[in-house]
């Protein structure tokens, strides 16, 4: 077999190994393992993450020869905006209420579009506010504060 690294597999292998190693460490630190006959709370995590580490190693080693499969480019900007919009919603929904947090979420998310059209975004925000209000508040009556000043 020739050395032909596959970036995807190598990354995946390293990721699985790192995750498994961290969890195994935490597991040995804090959970009694017990025996196969009397399993402690750490027994199953040990099996699962042990197996995961082994599989990660297999993927890593396999990845050295099955390439090349490059990892595609990361759309950092799109990702940051989408995840950021969702995070902002989560942070603001309880304090600032439904209307403000949804508007913020849409505003931030809309920046991911290549050409940002203010009027279109405004229209969308108003439409979605109305739709979400109708669906979630009026129809399903979920418990959520509407405005920063509402009860």
């Amino acid at each position: 077999m020739r050395f032909r690294p596959d970036a995807q597999d190598i990354f995946a292998g390293v990721m699985f190994i790192a995750f498994a190693a961290l969890m195994l460490y935490l597991n040995f630190e804090s959970h009694p393992i017990g025996t196969a006959r009397r399993m402690g709370s750490g027994y199953m995590p040990m099996l699962a993450f042990g197996l995961l580490a082994a599989l990660g190693l297999a993927i890593l080693i396999g990845g050295l020869f099955t390439g090349p499969e490059p990892i595609g480019r990361f759309a950092w900007r799109d990702m940051a905006l989408i995840l950021g919009a969702t995070t902002v919603f989560g942070l603001s929904v309880e304090r600032l209420g439904f209307v403000v947090s949804i508007s913020l979420c849409i505003l931030i998310a809309s920046l991911a579009e290549k050409t940002w059209k203010p009027l279109r975004v405004l229209g969308l925000t108003l439409f979605l506010l109305a739709l979400c209000w109708a669906v979630f508040i009026w129809y399903l009556d979920i418990r959520i504060r509407l405005f920063p000043w509402s009860h």
Binding site: I82, A85, T86, F89, G90, V93, F98, I102, C105, I106, A109, S110, A112, R120, L124, L128, L131, C132, F136, L140, I142, R143, I144
Partner: peptide, 16 residues
């Protein structure tokens, strides 16, 4: 127009 809607619906749905 679609993706902000998906995002908002997911976010509210999960919150609720």
């Amino acid at each position: 127009l679609m993706y902000p809607a998906i995002l908002v619906f997911c976010a509210i749905g999960v919150y609720s």
